[in-house]
Amino acid sequence: MAKLHVETSVNGEPTEFLCEPHTTLLDALRNDIGLTGTKEGCATGDCGACSVTLNGRLVCSCLVLAAEVSGQEVGTVEGVADAETLHPVQQKLLEHAGLQCGICTPGVVVAAKALLERDPNPSERDVRFWLAGNLCRCTGYDKIIRAVLDAATEMRA
């Protein structure tokens, strides 16, 4: 079976790749495009480690077919920081020790950034429910939530 040719944009850069019809966006990013920052924790949309944005909207890349992103804009964790500066969410995660093993962190970064773009002033409850789709088994979430709230404060200032 011939592979599909997909032209898309990843982190603002024009990108093209070949994939099988059943290939997920997650697998295309990791295996075909070589962006391994997006992680697979479950491949069933339950853990959020593969969070990316599609035209600005937060999605689980394991639940999107790679062929679907033709002509769309994909945002991954690799596109969050500028060349020289971390995004406030990344910086605050470091300052608050909001990561231990770090496997959920790319998903948390992408999801939290998407939240703060929608709602610059979320409550603790808002952050907890928004990030309810991002499983973390190390931290008990405490320091992640504090980091996101602190990033929100800094971004509003």
Partner: peptide
């Protein structure tokens, strides 16, 4: 700040499947 922190918040850190 942990020394491996930047790699882990930017997706650069290489895990088992990477």
């Amino acid at each position: 700040i942990r020394h491996d922190g930047i790699d882990k918040v930017t997706g650069r850190a290489q895990f088992g499947a990477d």
